[in-house]
Design a protein around this nucleic acid. Structure first.
Lengths: 265, 265
DNA sequence: CAGTGGTCTAGACCACACT
DNA sequence: GTGTGGTCTAGACCACTGC
């Protein structure tokens, strides 16, 4: 490939698939960024599914007609974004919520004392799973129109028999068509793993807004505390590949014996 | 430098300062990691202070007798850790809490509605600054011995006249010898910036534990809420360069019109 | 203009995993 | 052994900043 994207030389006659076209737009973007975009596109299109091994750096370099080092830089950034996982000697894999040794990658509620995997796995109980029309606020956050079909799921998470979290999920009806309370209840493992295998939806990142609130009657009952008990209110908006919002989640966390852990840097 | 750390060739007679000595220990670490450690050591030693420009990649490469690309990789990682800041065309600089266009890098409390820099800057009021002996729990977290000298600071932060945060800081007495309530009160700008300029202590990262609690009498009065009002309890342990804990901070946040924002990925 | 970081390439060799 | 990612080098050129 040319040393300058604007000035291709003999080595690479720009054919179909060649990612270099700088002269078209005022914006300049480095080759590795273009490669990154192309890889992302393949991820979105489902060419490589969560858990799959993607082609080797060398193969991708040939496919995109750039050097292996350029592909490497693209993959490096996708790996630090947790979209890909590199494994030396084996290959590069599409990240997945299943099979990640940490069971709940997005759950930040930890016990105040004791180890990480102390009192066993979380016990899940699905309370409800309904199909209904999106309220205005839910629709806005999910980039839908008010009244569009959405799924509402309520569930309770407990540790060692003691309920710790009650939460309500809102999912767009289209991508999650066919989701039933039975499928949710029977499933073992993270819900986001089920979303991947059953609906091809991979949650990539999320933003949470946290507040302290007083428990209302219903929530207090579900969590086994007195009404008015202080709870952490956690509102999460989760996104799939293209910064497309795919889940709105509102949870109430008991923090008597647990805390929400956050790392700043 | 040699292509193999274990097998130096003619080009670089290992002299003082050469970072390569793989045969001494069973652990293998890549060259760029060793360079990273050496740069970190210079940062800790204060050879380059916050805001300073460090030598160019080329100069560092000569100094450490490695290629520029290897230095680049080391600096890349230090930059993603927010220890260094690269500025194209200008140089690489030591990160600082002052002069960062975002005023409070570690403060995650945002207004529910409105822009980032909406209702003006935070108003700070120092309530107290005392020198005393470390309680057991404080000492443990700061890696001190019970009874060692520590500084305790209490302050209130308000936005547009409405108090939003009350917090209590514990600082080790040694590094912060001479810190007075006057210095704190007169200071404009982030407290962590003052720590850098006055005490040479740079906070690099922090871990926060978040809970929901009910306001006690004193806290309620300071924050202008009723006792029992739900508050966010935020306990922060902040570290300087060598993962050395340097500040314990316990804060209570009002979250009526604000929320703690967190990004998951 | 010179100096800095940023991109891209090409090739060599190492460490690791599987077969 | 073969194939993968991981490290290291050397050199060329681009983009940005400030003199």
């Amino acid at each position: 490939m040319a040393t300058s994207p604007q000035n291709p030389t003999d080595a690479a006659p720009a054919e179909a698939g060649a990612p270099v076209f700088e002269n078209t737009a005022p914006a300049f973007s480095p080759l590795y960024q273009q490669i990154k975009t192309l890889i992302l596109r393949s991820l979105q299109a489902g060419e490589w599914k969560p858990g799959d091994m993607i082609p080797s750096e060398f193969d991708l370099a040939a496919r995109f007609r750039v050097s292996q080092g350029t592909v490497r830089k693209a993959i490096d950034e996708l790996a630090t974004d947790n979209l890909l996982v590199r494994r030396q000697g084996k290959g590069t894999f599409v990240a997945t919520h299943a099979e990640q040794h940490i069971q709940y990658r997005f759950l930040r509620l930890l016990p105040d004392t004791g180890t990480l995997e102390d009192q066993g796995p979380a016990e899940r109980r699905i309370v409800e799973c309904r199909r209904l029309r999106a309220p205005a606020e839910v629709a806005r956050q999910l980039s839908l129109r008010t009244g569009d079909a959405v799924l509402q799921v309520k569930r309770v998470l407990a540790f060692a028999g003691i309920p710790a979290i009650v939460e309500e999920l809102w999912l767009p009806g289209g991508p999650f068509k066919g989701l039933t309370i039975e499928a949710l209840s029977e499933d073992k493992g993270p819900m986001y793993a089920l979303f991947e295998t059953q609906f091809g939806v991979r949650m990539v990142r999320a933003v949470e807004k946290i507040k302290a609130v007083s428990a209302d009657e219903d929530t207090a009952t579900l969590l086994g505390v007195a009404p008015g008990h202080p709870l952490l209110s956690v509102e999460r908006l989760a996104y799939t590949y293209n910064d497309e919002p795919m889940e709105l989640r509102r949870g109430y966390y008991r923090t008597d014996a647990r805390h929400y852990r956050n790392e700043l840097s």
